[in-house]
Design a protein around this nucleic acid. Structure first.
Lengths: 149, 149
DNA sequence: AAAAATACTTCAGTACCTGAAACAACAATG
DNA sequence: CATTGTTGTTTCAGGTACTGAAGTATTTTT
């Protein structure tokens, strides 16, 4: 078209957006594959990974996942059926059910994390200095405070 | 196979993996929101975006999406019901049905693309030189030939 | 104690996704 | 040719994910 003014058509930025889209697609694909290798769906793997950091009430799992609590019920049901997660009563509030990984669940979560090596291999093409620069740019993009470290 | 000096625990690399995970999560969230703003699901938006680059046989849509052809049938059905896409016969091969965006579909795809500004805003924190460096690293990570351009 | 809020589940309803089976049209072989 | 095999698409069954609207228990508020 004509209109060369708009920063929306900045070629460099557009390419970066495109590339990030590619990264996202690959990451997702590998994540799904890794999950499936352990007999899990992506959603189940995400919940398992979250719970492997510590037990959480159902409600908070939903908040972290940014979905409805009724959805979490089903996912945890399926994880519980595989004995990777269990529901525990909350001592303080009898309405609350806390989801916690089992020993088996913890093992699966670790294995999952270790087989998620998307970034490791491609990163090998970058030097140490480049990795640091790359990290800093990612941090800035995400609004992380770069001062500390 | 116990990996002695294990680069798996390299802190810098681990952080980059973590950050990329964050990027992926945010990108996905924004993509889904943008799609939903236009009355589409994520899968529908992806197919529409793909077809907006040019018509494609169903089979090839599936290959690009990395899913089964039977899945594409349903997604295109729903896009066709909204008159954003239409199936056309292929002159050369009467088995093939080519999915093509309609005028309305093209408009929706463009609007979608323009409201997908995840990377634009965060990128504003990077200088021109940094963007170029960032782009080159992404290219290398994705195995793109960096020689040209 | 009654009313309002909270945590979880259950239940439609929709979409996504796979794999098997069916169908039509093409390609290759005898 | 006619047969056989392959390919492109759809249909169907089965499972998961997700939302939003009930419903049930259990606090918390008033």
């Amino acid at each position: 078209m004509t209109a060369p003014s708009s920063p929306r058509t900045d070629l460099l930025t557009l390419e970066v957006v495109e590339l990030i889209g590619e990264i996202v697609a690959r990451y997702h694909q590998e994540y799904e594959e890794a999950a499936s290798r352990h007999g899990l769906t992506g959603a189940q793997a995400r919940v398992l990974g979250l719970l492997s950091l510590g037990p959480l009430p159902m409600r908070q799992v939903a908040q972290r996942l940014k979905c409805e609590p009724s959805n979490v019920t089903g996912i945890v049901d399926r994880l519980e059926a595989r004995v990777l997660v269990e529901r525990q009563p909350s001592p303080g509030d009898r309405r609350v059910k806390v989801a916690a990984v089992t020993a088996e669940g913890r093992r699966t979560a670790r294995a999952l994390r270790e087989s998620l090596d998307f970034a490791r291999e491609p990163l090998s093409g970058l030097s140490q200095d480049e990795r640091v620069a790359f990290r800093d740019m990612l941090r800035r993009m995400l609004g992380v405070d770069v001062g500390t470290d």
